[in-house]
């Protein structure tokens, strides 16, 4: 039975909600109240659109296009905190430094890294990788040695392949001792691009 009263109840004049505005407001308030544990934003790089994820501790993840964003958000929610929201302005520092790196005016990143996605030997390998200077390359064996296990170069290769913060933790600077470039998470063309940018490979 639908009568006049029920009809009026079913049709309140409801203004539409601007969900993007709500998201932005919530992200800002969350950051102010210290409730934004993982913020992210996208960055248009010469290597395609990257996604930058930061925590109050620092840069936690930098991902290449093609890595499904929902899966990354799920992983961060599970491993860091479920308080995850898009908040591009929180990633401005990272984006500006990437700008100057790709623009050729920056050699070293001055960014705190949140290492929580890396554990054990993998973390050791990536910390050693973070110390490789701009414009130079080392072998997988070198980086394994620097991480404390010279013979674990295959494991070192796996660790580099799962680097959560490529470019900034420069796993592209690790190559085969014999001269081959080795592999790269973002694809070999991107590794070549970065090594050309740094003057290791001819342009």
């Amino acid at each position: 039975m639908t009568d006049e009263l029920e009809r009026r109840l079913s049709a309140p004049a409801s203004p539409a909600l601007d969900v993007d505005h709500l998201r932005a407001m919530l992200a800002r308030r969350a950051a102010e109240d210290g409730l934004l544990d993982v913020a992210y934003g996208s960055y248009d790089s010469p290597l395609g659109p990257l996604t930058v994820f930061v925590t109050p501790r620092g840069l936690v993840r930098l991902s290449y296009p093609g890595e499904p964003i929902d899966e990354q958000l799920d992983e961060l929610a599970a491993r860091i905190s479920p308080r995850v929201m898009a908040a591009p302005e929180r990633t401005d520092d990272v984006r500006h430094q990437l700008d100057s790196y790709f623009g050729g005016t920056r050699r070293d990143f001055e960014l705190p890294i949140d290492w929580r996605l890396m554990r054990g030997f993998r973390a050791d390998v990536l910390r050693a990788t973070a110390r490789i200077p701009f414009g130079s390359v080392v072998s997988y064996r070198d980086v394994a040695a620097a991480a404390g296990s010279p013979n674990a170069y295959r494991a070192a290769g796996n660790a580099l392949g799962s680097n959560p913060v490529p470019i900034v933790v420069p796993c592209h600077r690790v190559v085969h001792a014999g001269g081959g470039l080795g592999g790269y998470t973002g694809g070999l063309e991107r590794k070549q691009f970065l090594l050309r940018l740094e003057g290791v490979l001819d342009r």
Binding site: R23, D74, V84
Partner: peptide
């Protein structure tokens, strides 16, 4: 079961 990223609850 893990909690989904918070912004998904907003969307």
């Amino acid at each position: 079961m893990h909690l989904p990223p918070f912004e998904r609850l907003v969307d």
